[in-house]
């Protein structure tokens, strides 16, 4: 059984029908990419999964639990975390405090928090150097690291990343994608939303293409990378 399974999800923003029947699966241990243009519904999909938006119909099963009517904060307890688009670190909290918030679900289990912090600092040594700095004073790349690190602090089974490459220099993008692979290697399943379709498809095992709120195409990432239509529409080739 898949770790995460969406069945025919419909989500509305007021009167706007944003997701029109999304069904997708994320297998344990994989990296799954969700690509598509701006406004296709990628972020909406992630926000629906993490409980920030409530789908009007359809079901979401995570790790055997139906979560489509569960409040967002309880979903995190099941081991599903979401690093939101645009990083969104807490600007007036220190790096340390940001990470502690990521471990909120662990309660006062000091040892577990310390162990997770060490793991995150190993992935992102820069964060350790800046641990007493305020989140808002970090550079864009550092904020992205903090956002991902924060989402890892609760030792999730599934990590959802929304546009981790957004607004970063190419060198940094490469480094971030490397780290995502490393995170996956450590046993965390990843659902990745990306505009940078080429990089995402190279990294992912499986991918879905979203167009105006529906899944237009899906398949193993390698196949999609070779697919004529995908190359034309998303990889900028003629």
């Amino acid at each position: 059984m898949a770790l995460l399974e969406l069945q025919d999800i419909h989500t509305y923003y007021g009167h706007v029908h944003a997701l029109k029947g999304i069904s997708l699966q994320v297998e344990e241990g994989q990296i799954v990419a969700l690509i598509g243009a701006n406004g296709a519904g990628k972020t909406t999909t992630l926000r629906t999964i993490s409980g920030l938006l409530r789908p009007r119909s359809g079901s979401i099963i995570f790790d055997g639990n139906p979560i489509h009517r569960m409040p967002a904060h309880r979903i995190v307890h099941l081991g599903l975390t979401h690093a939101p688009e645009g990083r969104q670190v807490f600007p007036t909290l220190t790096v340390q405090e940001n990470l502690n918030m990521g471990a909120y679900t662990l309660g006062n289990d000091k040892e577990a928090i310390e162990e997770n912090r060490r793991r995150v600092f190993k992935l992102f040594p820069r964060l350790e150097e800046r641990k007493n700095q305020l989140g808002g004073t970090l550079s864009g790349g550092e904020q992205q690291m903090l956002s991902i690190g924060r989402a890892l602090m609760s030792r999730p089974k599934l990590l959802m990343l929304d546009e981790p490459s957004l607004g970063l220099a190419p060198m940094l993008v490469k480094a971030i994608f490397e780290t995502i692979r490393e995170i996956n290697r450590q046993g965390v399943t990843v659902l990745l939303v990306e505009q940078n379709a080429r990089a995402a498809l190279k990294l992912a095992d499986y991918a879905y293409v979203l167009e105006t709120g529906t899944i237009a195409l899906e398949g193993p990432a390698g196949e999609l990378l070779r697919d004529e239509r995908v190359r034309k529409a998303y990889l900028g080739e003629t």
Binding site: A72, H73, V76, F90, L93, N100, M101, Y104
Partner: peptide, 21 residues
């Protein structure tokens, strides 16, 4: 921990929810 969560909530409700708060 709760106090920090309070500060987090005053910064952003949605992101706080994503932390499990």
């Amino acid at each position: 921990r709760i106090g920090t969560a309070m500060r987090a909530v005053s910064l952003d409700h949605d992101v706080s929810r994503l932390m499990g708060i």
